[in-house]
Simulated assay, not measured.
Amino acid sequence: MPNILYIKNMVCPRCISSVSRILNKLNIEYNTIELGEVALSNELSPKNKSLLSVEFQNEGFSLVNDRKSQLIEQMKSLVVDKIHHSNEALDIKWPEYISGKLYLDYKYLSSLFSAVESITFEQYIINQKIERVKELIVYNELSLSEIAFQMSYSSVAYLSNQFKKITGMTPTHFKNSTNKNRKNLDEV
Rank of each mutant, 00 (worst) to 15 (best):
K25I: 01
V11H: 04
E122Q: 14
Y103T: 13
E131T: 03
I7P: 00
N65P: 02
P2H: 12
W94H: 08
V64G: 08
V80I: 15
D91F: 05
Y108R: 05
G168I: 05
P46K: 10
L104C: 02
T167K: 14
F174H: 09
I119Q: 11
V38P: 01
L102A: 07
F174E: 11
R14Y: 09
T120C: 02
L52G: 02
L35N: 03
E59P: 08
S77R: 01
L40K: 11
P95E: 08
Q150P: 00
E96F: 12
E73L: 09
V80W: 03
H173D: 15
Q150V: 08
N27F: 06
R182S: 11
D66Q: 13
E146F: 00
Y6F: 12
S110L: 06
L102Y: 03
Q128C: 02
K107T: 13
P46R: 09
S45Y: 01
P171F: 09
S155M: 02
Y6K: 06
L71R: 14
R67S: 14
E34K: 15
I130T: 01
V64S: 04
G60Q: 09
T32P: 04
E73Y: 09
N65I: 14
R67K: 14
T167A: 06
E37T: 13
S99M: 11
L23F: 02
S20L: 03
N31H: 10
K76N: 11
S111N: 14
C12G: 07
L159N: 01
T178E: 15
K183N: 10
A39F: 06
S177V: 05
Y158P: 03
L159M: 07
S77V: 07
V38A: 10
C15W: 03
K165W: 04
K165M: 12
A115E: 15
R132K: 15
D105H: 10
K25P: 02
K165I: 06
V64Y: 07
S114T: 12
Y6G: 00
S111V: 08
M10H: 05
L78D: 09
N48W: 03
W94D: 12
I137R: 05
H85L: 09
E88Y: 09
L63R: 03
D66T: 13
H173Q: 15
N87G: 15
S77T: 04
I125P: 03
M151S: 01
N181F: 06
I166V: 14
A89V: 12
E96S: 15
H84F: 09
N140D: 15
Y153K: 00
S62P: 05
M151H: 00
Y30M: 05
L109P: 01
A115G: 12
S41K: 15
I130Y: 00
I166W: 03
W94Y: 14
F174R: 10
